[in-house]
Structures are given as C-alpha cells and as structure tokens.
C-alpha cells in the first residue's frame, strides 16, 4: 500500500490539518497547523485540497521515503535545507518523489515549523472531523501521538500534476510587529500595562510549544483581580497570569481558561508567531476591529489565490537539472551552479 515512511521524524513531527473545530464545547482542543498559510501553500503546491492533512515538522525535518507510486511532495514554512538522495531541492516548491528515494530535511535557519505535504494527503482516519494530532489528549493523527522512526502513514489517492513553486514575493509576509486586537479582558489592566504591551519587546522563552509561548520581558500589572471565572480562549489570546508574564496561546490552546486576556493576535499574524524561536523578540501593535477585519480579508484572499500565484518550478531547480542530466537527456548542458 502507498505510504509515507518516517525514517527519522526530526525533533517533533505530527500529522496536522486545519484543526478540529466544533468540539470545544466538549473540551476538545482545536490543534491544527501552527502556520496555516504555509500549510495551505504546501497542499496547493502538490495539488491537494486546502484541508488535506500534512506533516508538521519542528526545527529539524528528518528523513522520509514513500512507498508505492511516485508522489508530488513539497516542504513549506521555514527555509529547511532539503535534499533528495543528496541533491538539494528548494523549499516552497513541489517535486516528484519516487519509491526508493530518500527525502532529507535538515535544519531550519530562519524559523521553527515546516509542512511536508504529499499529493493525496496523509490519510489517517479523521477523529471528530479532523486528522489533526493533539498529543496531550491522544486524539487524531497517528494513534494520537507524535511520529516515531519507522512509522508509516497512509496516503490518499492522487493523480499526476505539475511541479510548482510559490516565489518568495508571493508568500504571506511575516509581520515585524504582531497586530493585536485589545480584549477581551483589557479592562483588567491600566494604561501603563497597555503601553508596555505595545511599546516593549517580549522575548520567546524556552517554554514554547504548540500550546503556547511563555514570554519574557516586562511584567504587566493587573488593575483588578488576576483571576477571572473561566471563559473561552481564542487562537492568539495573550493571557496574563499573576506573575505578570505573558502567555501567547496557539494551536493546542485549551478551550477555556481563567486568566485575564489582555489582547489577541490576529489570525493572519499567527504564522509569524509559529516561526518565532526561543530568544526571538515579539513586539505587538494594537489595531482596531475594522483594521483587523480588513487584514483578515487580505489574508483570506491570499489563501484563496495561492494556486494562481504559483508558477512552474524554474529550470534553475537544481534537482530537476540533476535529474535530467542523470537521465542523460540534456547532453552538453552544464547545470548552472
């Protein structure tokens, strides 16, 4: 049977899709891809449905093989060093991977997370409507857990299609300052806390995972109680517990919680957070609801037009050149290295 095999899953690899919405009322965590634009781009590059499941990679991508028919694959997100049987391949670019070839995904110099999409999608059974893995509750993905060396993931049916790339200028930019909408509990903080939130830098600490990032930097003081009766938590919520240090909540956030939330990072800027490694300085800029909605409209339009922005993988793709040379079809042409 066709499959994707993890020879080495890297630091942390999980199956993710767009998330498990609709079950938070029962305490089920949404999960899903941390960098949604990169995840959707990976699917578009290999001709998948926008919500097909992919493998989310973390810091190092490991080594992968496929079984069965050749598949288009693509790696997006951070600029991982990628090679097929030792020949370099660019990120944000689809290429055909055949059984017996080894796909090596090295370190990410500029980010944290990558998305390995395979044509046909990762076909683990959906749980409560989604294939996303939430490791803490053991739901979704492959047996509700992170991938291990030797795991084999089933793949859906796929046809052939073009090798494509999304040029750097056509990707959703990483915002230098993360746009936030104040609230829902900004009323628990005085003007000094709001000014610090939008004026100071908050380094990502080592306590940063799919659930959320604890941030260093200035401590924000509560004006009233540092506890509230638990209410719902949005993607991008910035919680302020009694310590005054910020916690930015991400894909694996709990559905409800009891700390005041001073602001919420807007959805289009969550990808930039997902790619921020420990030590990176996060800065926030407060925007109004109208501006947030306009930004979201741009982002939705960007995601809807990904396929139109793609172009055929360039001949400068060293993997293509190497393959053509290897097949002895391009006699006398020297690959431009």
């Amino acid at each position: 049977m066709d499959g994707l095999r993890a020879i080495d899953p890297g630091l942390l690899a999980t199956v993710q899709d767009a998330g498990r919405y609709g079950w938070q009322r029962f305490g089920v965590v949404v999960a899903g891809a941390m960098d949604l634009a990169a995840y959707r781009t990976a699917n578009a590059l290999v001709g998948n449905d926008a919500d097909a499941a992919a493998v989310e990679l973390t810091l190092t991508g490991g080594r992968w093989e496929i079984a069965g028919q050749p598949r288009r694959v693509a790696v997006t997100g951070a600029e991982f060093a990628i090679a097929v049987d030792g020949r370099p391949v660019p990120a944000w670019c689809s290429f055909v991977l055949r059984a017996g070839e080894s796909l090596t995904i090295g370190r990410a110099p500029d980010g944290v997370r990558g998305y390995l999409a395979v044509s046909g999608g990762i076909a683990v059974p959906p749980v409560l409507g989604s294939r996303s893995t939430h490791v803490r509750s053991g739901i979704g993905g492959l047996d509700g857990r992170a991938l291990r060396a030797g795991d084999r993931l089933p793949l859906g049916d796929a046809g052939e299609g073009p090798e494509l790339e999304l040029p750097a200028e056509a990707r959703w930019p990483r915002a230098p300052r993360l746009r936030v909408v104040l609230g829902p509990q900004d009323g628990h903080f005085g003007p000094d806390a709001i000014a610090a939130l939008t004026g100071e830098a908050f380094p990502v600490t080592a306590e940063a995972d799919r659930m959320g990032y604890r941030l260093a930097g200035p401590r924000l003081r509560h004006r009233g109680s540092d506890n509230i009766v638990s209410d719902g938590i949005a993607l991008g919520s910035i919680q302020v517990p009694a310590s005054g240090h910020l916690i930015l909540l991400l894909a694996d956030r709990q559905p409800t919680g009891g700390y005041p939330k001073i602001a919420t990072v807007v959805t289009p800027d969550i990808g930039a957070v997902a790619q921020a490694a420990p030590g990176a300085n996060l800065q926030f800029e407060a925007i109004g609801l109208d501006a947030a909605r306009a930004l979201r409209r741009d982002w939705d339009a960007h995601l809807a037009s990904l396929s139109a922005r793609m172009r055929p993988a360039q001949s400068g793709n060293p993997y293509d050149s190497a393959r053509l040379l290897g097949l002895n079809l391009v006699g006398g042409v020297v690959a431009g290295e």
């Binding site: 104040l182 829902p184 719902g232 993607l235 919520s237 959805t267 109004g288």
Partner: peptide, 23 residues
C-alpha cells in the same frame, strides 16, 4: 473600541467583547 464593549441595557447588561479578528 475594545475598551467600550457593546452593552445592551435592559438585558441584565450582557457585554460583547472582541477576542481577535474571528471570535
């Protein structure tokens, strides 16, 4: 504005507060 949540007088003053761009 986020500091001015929408209130409905006469309904025991429920308040609507934004939680980002989509919640």
């Amino acid at each position: 504005g986020p500091d001015d949540p929408v209130a409905a007088p006469g309904h025991g003053a429920p308040r609507v507060r934004p939680a980002g761009d989509a919640a």
